[in-house]
Design a protein around this nucleic acid. Structure first.
Length: 459
RNA sequence: UCCCUGAUAGCUCAAUCGGCAGAGCGGGUGGCUGUUAACCACUAGGUUGUAGGUUCAAGUCCUACUCAGGGAGCCA
């Protein structure tokens, strides 16, 4: 009856939720901690299915108890036994071990200890840090957020599309690009290169997504994006994931409605589906987390035109380091004032001056602003940037000729405005910044398993 | 890329005015019949980031470099 070979492996997340004991169970996972007494040991096993460990009681009647005594933190093991109500405080169930097999030994040099490690140290062992409570929780939440993104869009009839990762086009204003080449070192002849032209890793799928929106109606991308900026901040990575919806027959106001609904859906989804993991962040990382998430889900976002935002900043009489003036872009300190002091909640700033925004954004009737919007949230700043796209061929032509890009590379983009062009809009959501917002983690390097930043690609 | 701060045991940190380099945790050994970051005793563990310089004497002061953190810029 207790032959381990006849049992299906149980996940700890399911065992801990049980209302009654399933009897004999088989569990496989890693030792998080072990406490020895005379004649028996408490072993806490984690299998990654949830934050919590399950407690195992192994005593000296086991034939290999001497080996079990020597098992160290980090070791992988397979064990079977009866799940019984725990005699001790602190957990409802425990497993009375009847068989314990060491699957993979972890020598005493195992770097993860039963105490809190600094984030800086854990970044130096990125291959092991998912085995900690905090990073395990972060990556489970990341997974749930990805699911929630697909669910949000699919429920609204959006089509998931894939845009190229290798590209020859520059999405203006999106930053420096990584060059991709098969040329031998020293060979400068682009004609000999794989594509015969300069190729890059994409900085945005937007231009291609527009083409799909003009065929499939409502579409979204969700994939990796690359920026070769020498940015050394807690909010920037060279490789990050971005969500980019694009909607035909959609204006800026509807774009903003969707951006707000998306963020509210995502925060709500995580509150509903990741309560245990979230509680770790609420306890140890950000005491205000649950309040902030609840407010984000419940309260409408503030909306303010750029010109009004400038007026608010001027009236504040704050000694800003960067001057506040109509025509200047909003600096981090300005965004923080708006979000954290003036509005005290998420803010959508829209209708920016055309000079500080890319060519593809739609010119407003005033002739000096474009139909653009940034969603700003506390602690992160810009989490979403979007716009209504310029759908009028002549207007777009004029914008593209006024910038240093080569218009001939955009012939296909221009042509979409000659055949059945329609008003359309979209935005980009930084996925890592979303994970930061939802967990309270303050460094982007800690919300992606293997972060890429300048001089950092070891793992 | 710029500004500020930092680098001491495996980890987190201390070391007063420039004067013998220490603690907690972790590791090892032993003990403990229900633990919860278990507990108790003992024990090993160091080229003080790198290279120079000042000094009788440098973890400590000076210079350069490397790396890291925070802030700024760029952006998502």
């Amino acid at each position: 009856m207790n032959d381990p070979s006849k049992l299906e492996r149980s996940r700890i997340v399911h065992l801990l939720q049980a209302d009654q004991s399933p009897g004999s169970v088989l569990v496989k996972g890693w030792v998080r901690t072990k406490r020895d007494a005379k004649g028996f040991s408490f072993i806490e096993i984690n299998d990654g299915s949830c934050l919590a460990n399950i407690q195992v009681v192994a005593d000296e009647t086991l034939s290999n108890y001497a080996t079990i005594r020597k098992m160290t933190t980090g070791s992988a093991l397979s064990l079977s036994g009866r799940m019984v109500p725990s005699r001790g405080q602190g957990q409802r169930w425990e497993i009375k071990a009847e068989s314990v097999t060491l699957v993979g030994h972890a020598p005493e040099a195992y770097p993860l200890q039963k105490k809190r490690h600094s984030d800086e140290f854990l970044r130096t062992i990125a291959h092991l840090r998912p085995r900690t409570n905090k990073y395990g929780a972060a990556f489970r939440i990341r997974s749930q957020l990805a699911l929630a993104i697909h669910r949000f869009f699919q429920d609204r009839g959006f089509h998931y599309i894939h845009t190229p990762i290798l590209t020859a086009s520059d999405c203006e204003g999106a930053g420096e690009m990584f060059r991709v080449t098969t040329l031998a070192p020293g060979d400068a002849a682009v004609a000999n290169d794989f594509f015969g032209v300069n190729a890059y890793l994409t900085v945005s799928g937007q231009l291609e997504a527009e083409m799909l929106a003009l065929a499939l109606g409502d579409v979204y991308t969700f994939g990796p994006t690359f920026r070769a900026e020498n940015s050394n901040t807690r909010r920037h990575a060279a490789e990050f994931w971005m969500v980019e919806p694009e909607m035909a027959f959609c204006d800026l106001a509807q774009d903003m409605v969707l951006a707000e609904a998306l963020l509210q859906h995502l925060a709500g989804h995580v509150m509903d589906h990741c309560a245990a993991d979230l509680s770790l962040f609420a306890r140890f990382v950000d005491k205000e987390l649950m309040h902030r998430l609840a407010a984000l889900v419940e309260k409408p976002f503030f909306r303010v035109p750029y010109a009004d935002a400038i007026a608010i900043l001027e009236r504040s009489a704050r000694p800003f380091e960067h001057p506040v003036a109509h025509g200047n872009d909003l600096q981090a300190e300005h965004e923080r004032y708006l979000v954290e002091h003036h509005f005290k909640g998420p803010v959508i700033v829209y209708d920016f001056p055309k000079e500080i925004k890319p060519f593809y954004m739609r010119m407003n009737d005033d002739g000096c602003t474009v139909a653009s919007m940034d969603v700003l949230v506390a602690g992160i700043g810009e989490i979403i940037g979007g716009s209504q796209r310029e759908e009028r061929y002549d207007m777009l032509r004029r914008r593209i000729e006024s910038i240093p890009l080569a218009p001939e590379n955009y012939w296909w983009y221009m042509e979409s405005r000659q055949y059945g062009s329609v008003p359309h809009s979209g935005f980009g959501l930084g996925f890592e910044r979303l994970v930061m917002m939802v967990t309270g983690i303050t460094n982007i390097r800690d919300v992606i398993p293997f972060p890429r930043t300048p001089k950092n690609i070891a793992f």
